[in-house]
Design a protein around this nucleic acid. Structure first.
Length: 194
DNA sequence: AAAATGATCCTT
DNA sequence: AGGATCATTTTC
């Protein structure tokens, strides 16, 4: 069963935690790939100096984050890699969760072909890597995760005592927001990023 | 109109 | 430790 709008349109930190353990599915011409979410980061709107929507910055790129929850926010970083985010909370609250790592579950052969490597540990262990492995590009930006071929499955929840939170990665520019513990990982999972 | 800057990854 | 590589944002 696909996760529905109500799941996404809640407090972002709550959604971020509950996204752990959910399966991300992408059905394409080439085939279907599935990965379990094991690492995420929350970016919380106008007051978060690390967020693209800091100070309410609204542009063609960030526009989707101002819409209703449950949509994909995909952008190009460093000229070569895509990052996949999920829009959370309700319209006019520009908050998102960055998906940082997946544990490959299905379609491993296709992932390996897209990533040009056979090392399973290296297929989806980073935001740019998982986009390549899952075939996610800017074409998926603004996709509705409640309706299309890119969606999340309402499967297992991870118990609180298996979740670890840490500061976020690569946001040295973000002032005091550097230390906010808004990165969540499944404790001990082998597939998180470095 | 031009310059700076990354929510990264891979190689050295 | 540094290079690839470009859309987006910031500054002139």
């Amino acid at each position: 069963m696909k996760l529905q709008r109500e799941f996404y349109e809640r407090s972002t930190l709550e959604v971020a935690r509950e996204l752990l353990g959910k399966c991300l599915v992408h059905e394409t011409q080439e085939g279907t790939t599935v990965g379990k979410i094991v690492e995420v980061e929350a970016y919380i709107g106008p007051d978060d100096a690390a967020a693209h929507t800091y100070k309410g910055l609204r542009s063609s790129r960030t526009e989707v984050a101002f819409g209703p929850g449950g949509h994909a926010y995909v952008y190009l970083i460093y000229g070569m890699y895509h990052c996949f985010n999920i829009v959370t909370n309700v319209a006019e609250k520009p908050e998102v969760v960055l998906i940082r790592a997946l544990e490959p579950m299905d379609g491993l052969e296709l992932m390996a072909k897209r990533r040009k490597t056979n090392a399973v540990r290296n297929l989806c262990s980073g935001p740019g890597k998982l986009c390549a492995a899952m075939g996610i590009t800017k074409a998926n930006n603004t996709d509705d995760l409640c309706r299309g071929k890119l969606y999340l499955l309402d499967n297992s929840n991870i118990p609180e005592n298996k979740i670890v939170s840490t500061p976020r990665i690569n946001i040295d520019y973000a002032g005091e927001a550097i230390s906010y513990p808004w990165r969540y990982i499944i404790s001990g999972n082998k597939f998180v990023s470095k």
